[in-house]
Write a protein that binds this DNA or RNA. Structure first.
Lengths: 78, 78
DNA sequence: CGTGTAAGGAATTCTGACACG
DNA sequence: CGTGTAAGGAATTCTGACACG
């Protein structure tokens, strides 16, 4: 949770996605990168995995809203 | 070896050292950060540990040359 | 020797917006 | 809806150098 250490540039390299895509997933509340004092995003490896998963699901036909609901369900499992 | 993903800014935060110190240890061949296409340094958590170790040793009185020799010895252990 | 700092430039990242479909 | 892109600005990082001790 506190190991958000890489820039969007690294995430871009690791995932092959565009900055636009990566930022959009945050806009839709699917990932929550930390921020530096200056305002730059900082991601963890967990976030990278999540981002790749999101992209996969989108290609499968899901939309960001459905993915948000789904991740909420996961968190609420008892 | 391929997990060099954080900027000098993160290393600075994690170690409390200055950019000058962090860069100097590289200048003295004690750490070997990767570089982005643009030329920015990228460090791994291993590097961060190494940097902290270097700083500790320096405070103990060692100089960068001795530390370089020492790390070379470690690598050559058979 | 190890570190601080001011200097100027280049690379990185940010936001809000318009575009397409 | 998910993504591309040009725009302008701000934050980040880089190098080489002078300084101190």
């Amino acid at each position: 949770m506190n190991d958000q250490i890489m820039s969007i540039g690294m995430v871009k390299e690791l995932t092959g996605l565009s900055e636009r895509q990566i930022r959009y997933y945050e806009e839709k509340q699917l990932v929550f990168p930390a921020r530096t004092k200056g305002g730059s995003r900082r991601y963890s490896f967990e976030d990278v995995k999540k981002i790749q998963e999101i992209h996969r699901k989108l290609k499968e036909g899901y939309n960001t809203y459905e993915l948000k609901i789904k991740s909420r369900r996961q968190s609420n499992v008892i």
